[in-house]
Amino acid sequence: MSDETASKNILIVDDEEIIVDILMRRFERMGFSVHAALDRITAIDILENQQIDVIMCDVLLPNGTDGEAVLHAALAQHPESHFVAMSGNIMSDESVQKLLQQGVDLFIKKPFLSLGEVADQVAELVSHSE
């Protein structure tokens, strides 16, 4: 749709299939080329084999390793890409701060306040890279 998001590649990682499905629908409509993974192994595999501009990834529990592994792979494979962390967990300000320090560009809490707003924020992030 918009020039900024057209032909951009987004990778959505969440163990909740319906959430992946909703985000896919939304970002496809916005003109993104959407890739999806339900687990970290698939996500890392995609990161190693595809051009990815933005990653939206559920980071699960604060001490979980899944989100972190995907983040490291993203930083290693596509240092230019943007990383959006999502979490439905009660996360302390410190752990969010830690994520941001590790290279996360945006932190989004689940449930989303508004799906439209989330999509806008991600689109804006991508447009800034131009």
Binding site: I19, K110, L115
Partner: peptide, 8 residues
């Protein structure tokens, strides 16, 4: 998680 789906 389900709340995210419902709201989205």
């Amino acid at each position: 998680n389900p709340l995210t789906v419902i709201s989205a």
